[in-house]
């Protein structure tokens, strides 16, 4: 598939979910519908009044429906200061 995320296998990636969370981890596996398996996953929780809180998640599976973006990232550029959480994408009522 043209926009494959396969090339990030074994690499550290960031998954932004449609409810506005950011989860980092090493990509173990994925499929055509963006289901992803992350190893050593951690969620970076942003809030308005406190610096980033990191929660260890371990081996983690994210269902593709809930994926907004998947990206590789520059560890040096991570920002840990307080910030409003990302807005969520409202689920469509079909």
């Amino acid at each position: 598939m043209a926009s494959s995320i396969q090339e990030w296998k074994g690499k550290a990636i960031c998954v932004v979910t449609s409810d506005g969370r950011t989860i980092m981890g090493d990509l173990v596996g994925n499929d055509q519908v963006q289901n992803v398996i992350l190893e050593d996953a951690q969620e970076r929780i942003y809030s308005n009044d406190a610096p980033v809180e990191t929660v260890e998640l371990g081996l983690y599976v994210i269902r593709g429906d809930n994926v907004c973006m998947i990206a590789d990232y520059d560890k040096e550029k991570l920002v840990d200061t307080a910030a409003p959480p990302l807005p969520t994408i409202l689920q469509q009522q079909h």
Binding site: S3, I5, C14, V16, S18, T22, Q34, R44, Y46, G64, V67, C68, M69, I70, A71, D72, Y73, D74, K75, E76, K77, L78, V79, T81, A83, P84, L86, I89
Partner: peptide, 18 residues
């Protein structure tokens, strides 16, 4: 400034549905 969560991202896959 509004989305510091995303400044570290380099190459990005965006799901069509979003």
């Amino acid at each position: 400034d509004k989305y510091p969560q995303l400044v570290a991202l380099q190459n990005c896959f965006v799901r069509g549905s979003v």
